[in-house]
């Protein structure tokens, strides 16, 4: 499932912020694909600044509007539930949410929240993953 975010070719910097809610250990990777190119990893929540184990990405730039136009973004979070009783694994999966906020385009700040179809988990129910894909037009 792809979402869209409008880019003004004569605009300034576009920023991204990722907020993850889970009881588990989480890590997020943001990848960017420019027009005609391949995906390249540009942000990891495990690396400075603000490296953390909650999958959070504090607001930071992902590039200038002219180069992002007609590009794509891939926001991927993986989470491992730890010390969660087996009886709560179902609920912990329901609670797992990702909200990605893009800013700097004509639409202003736009949140993209993880949909049910965008998240999955392993057979053990302890490893969760969510993937939001955004087309920049």
């Amino acid at each position: 499932m792809e979402r869209t975010y409008q880019i003004d070719p004569s605009g300034g910097d576009i920023t991204i912020e990722v907020i993850v809610s889970t009881r588990g250990i989480a890590a997020t990777e943001v990848s960017r694909r420019l027009k005609g190119g391949s995906y390249v990893s540009i942000i990891k929540s495990t690396e400075p600044p603000n490296a953390n184990a909650a999958g959070m990405v504090t607001e930071r730039g992902i590039g200038h509007s002219p180069i992002l136009k007609e590009g794509k973004l891939d926001i991927y979070t993986i989470a491992r539930l730890v010390s969660v009783p087996d009886s709560d694994l179902e609920q912990a999966f329901e609670e797992f949410t990702i909200t990605c906020i893009l800013r700097g385009g004509p639409q202003g700040a736009q949140p993209f929240t993880l949909e049910a179809a965008e998240k999955e988990r392993s057979s053990s129910k302890k490893l969760l993953a969510g993937n939001i894909r955004i087309v920049l037009f």
């Binding site: 809610s21 009881r23 184990a53 909650a54 609920q91 949410t97």
Partner: peptide
């Protein structure tokens, strides 16, 4: 169903 849980 808290929405702001983190491992911390």
């Amino acid at each position: 169903k808290p929405k702001d849980e983190t491992v911390y």
